[in-house]
């Protein structure tokens, strides 16, 4: 929202929803979903040039003024990730990178050792680094200390739609962090996104929840509202949880009625 902008590095965004583009059924649906989401920052992957592929995600993002965020998806080592980030910088003219260094194909969980190594190298190299990380408060702090511009913990494995499996860890991370914390991976539906924002995330990054929904454009719009609703609730400050009820109507001034003689 305009009166509550998100700042990552030296850039300010009105939208707090970062979108991925993987898994979309078509470029047309992707375009409509991106517009419905209101996103201003969207990821792409770097892959071998295929001269037979027509239509470009890049030209679409450019057309709508959506900033491109290259990722290093598919990299298993710090070396691969650093080279991929440098290639992305050369190809796209941006020194922003969503840093992903995964440990294995089955879980797609980050490899924390390689991740931190790559983050340090890329920060030294002048990159604005947004690392996809485990929901580990200690690692989050180390990534921030290394100079990362944001921390992007996973709620649950990529594409799983299992939401935030450890809300407590998220709260520990957001309470401590001096840089924006962005839920990355795991969102399945709007309530997951609202919860992330209520836990103090500055933004949410998602792809599959929209691109693989039965109606991607509708889900994109739902996610936009969920981010805004969760953010507003976070700023407003929720009521404490109580064991017993607490009446919301006043207890003073009640009429004295004979409970034995109802009037009806």
């Amino acid at each position: 929202m305009a009166d509550d902008p998100l700042t990552i590095g030296d850039t300010t965004f009105t939208s707090r929803l970062i979108m991925g583009t993987g898994g979309t059924p078509s470029l047309d649906i992707m375009e409509r979903a991106l517009l419905a989401s209101g996103t201003e920052l969207t990821t792409v992957a770097m892959r071998r040039l295929d001269p037979t592929v027509a239509g470009s995600v890049l030209s679409l993002l450019e057309k709508h003024g959506i900033r491109v965020l290259p990722n290093t998806a598919g990299c298993y080592t710090a070396g691969e990730a650093v080279l991929t980030a440098r290639l992305a910088r050369e190809a796209l003219g941006t020194d922003w990178v969503k840093l992903e260094v995964i440990a294995d194909e089955r879980t797609l969980l980050p490899d924390p050792v390689e991740l931190l190594d790559a983050a340090e190298t890329l920060v030294d190299d002048g990159f604005t680094v947004l690392p996809y990380t485990n929901d580990d408060p200690v690692l989050a702090r180390k990534l921030e200390d290394a100079g990362c511009a944001a921390i992007m913990p996973l709620g649950s494995p990529i594409g799983s739609g299992l939401g935030i499996r450890n809300p407590h860890n998220f709260q520990l991370i957001t309470e401590r962090a001096g840089v924006p914390v962005v839920l990355d991976a795991g969102a399945g539906t709007a309530s997951d996104v609202a919860l992330a924002m209520e836990l103090g995330c500055a933004a949410v990054m998602l792809a599959s929840a929209v691109t693989r929904a039965q109606e991607p454009v509708l889900m994109a719009e739902g996610m936009r509202h969920a981010v805004e609703a969760g953010r507003l609730a976070f700023r407003a400050g929720r009521i404490p949880r109580r064991y017993f009820a607490e009446a919301s109507s006043p207890t003073a001034g009640l009429a004295h009625l004979d409970p034995e003689r109802p009037a009806f």
Binding site: G20, T21, G22, G23, T24, M30, T43, V44, A45, M46, R47, R48, L49, V53, S56, V57, L58, V68, L69, P70, N71, A73, T84, L87, A88, E90, A91, L92, K98, M205, A207
Partner: peptide
């Protein structure tokens, strides 16, 4: 890119040419 015109390719060189695709 500025060095592409003067980069001559030799036997056994490995070249990767990448671009942005949908992902993430």
């Amino acid at each position: 890119r500025g060095q592409w015109p003067e980069t001559r390719l030799g036997e056994g060189d490995r070249i990767e040419v990448l671009t942005a695709v949908q992902g993430g």
